[in-house]
């Protein structure tokens, strides 16, 4: 990491009002620094202030919270001024993916709408251009038939697919830093690896900085947080280096096993696998708008709203 970090959180403290009228100091003295293109893990048990620290950077703390310390993103002070500093970069340079894709996507808005609304907002581009970018991004996160996916709704996708959509939506606006808040915790174990691999690939391809929040050290090592990790406990942080993540030393890990002729061939990558795709939703032929309107009036009217 050369020069000033992209995001630096210095001596952050957050206190929240409690039900009995007092205040609880939820975060104290947390320091995090993330350089350009770097991945940093933020780990800790639940309730140790990981998510709150991230929300503070976005200026999305619950009302009544008071803060101390500094959050600087690319030379810009994010806290203070009533959160106006964060509002300028939120969604545009600084994106966030939430823990539970089942609830983080709006159930009543189409995937396309959710992929493009902030694009139109931030980049001042037309709907068609935004659609093009969104479709490309859906393809990048390996959503099958991205064009059709745009017209569908979150409940028509599985959990892993929804998290891919959420990631695509966060990255569509071309942010420089992605905050991933427990992106795999709510997912099936078999899906987790795919999401983690996706984040790592996107980071490399898009030269993205990533702040990975997790309570799972295994996730951190799988993502190769070889750079740095910060551990939080009871609202305090300790910076530590994960020189060689302990999990990868595990002798069961295929990656660490010496390659030899005797060892079984590497598992095929997901893309190359010859598994037939299950077409869960019927695909409509690409027909004229009015014919589409006749076919499903409810969907047509909804798409105008």
């Amino acid at each position: 990491m050369a020069g000033a970090p992209l995001l630096s959180i210095e001596n952050l403290s957050i206190s929240l009002p409690t039900a009995d009228g007092g205040r609880a100091l939820a975060v104290r003295g947390v320091d995090i620094a993330i350089g350009e293109g770097e991945i940093v893990g933020l780990a800790g048990e639940s309730g140790s202030g990981k998510t709150l620290s991230a929300l503070a950077a976005l200026g999305l703390l619950p009302s009544g919270a008071t803060t101390g310390g500094r959050v600087v993103f690319d030379g810009r002070e994010l806290m203070g001024e009533g959160g106006r500093g964060a509002a300028a970069v939120r969604g545009r340079d600084l994106a966030m993916v939430f823990q539970d894709p089942m609830t983080a996507l709006h159930p009543m808005l189409s995937v396309g709408r959710q992929m493009t609304e902030h694009l139109v907002q931030h980049r001042r581009i037309g709907r068609a251009e935004a659609d093009r970018i969104a479709i490309a991004m859906l393809d990048r996160v390996r959503i099958p038939n991205p064009k059709e996916a745009m017209a569908r709704f979150p409940h028509q996708f599985s959990g892993g697919m929804r998290q891919r959509i959420a990631i695509a939506s966060a990255l569509a606006a071309g942010p420089r830093l992605l905050i991933a808040d427990e992106p795999t915790t709510a997912l099936d174990v078999t899906v987790q690896a795919g999401i983690l691999r996706l984040i790592e690939n996107l980071r490399r391809e898009l030269k993205l900085s990533v702040l990975l929040i997790t309570h799972d050290l295994g996730v951190m090592s799988a993502l190769g947080c070889r750079g740095r990790a910060t551990l939080t406990r009871a609202g305090c942080s300790t910076r530590c280096r994960m020189a060689a993540p302990p999990i990868t030393r595990c002798r069961h890990c295929p990656a660490r096993r010496p390659r030899s002729a005797a060892s079984p061939p590497a598992a095929p990558s997901i893309r190359a696998a010859a598994l037939p795709r299950i077409s869960a939703a019927p695909t409509f032929p690409n027909c004229l708008p009015w014919a589409r309107a006749m076919r499903s009036p409810a969907r047509w009217i909804r798409s105008r709203w």
């Binding site: 999305l60 969604g91 159930p107 609304e117």
Partner: peptide, 19 residues
């Protein structure tokens, strides 16, 4: 959560509330 996610996308408060 989806309202928080909408805010995190940087949408104006009016859009977050009305849509």
């Amino acid at each position: 959560d989806y309202v928080r996610a909408a805010r995190a996308k940087g949408l104006p408060e009016r859009t977050v509330i009305l849509r």
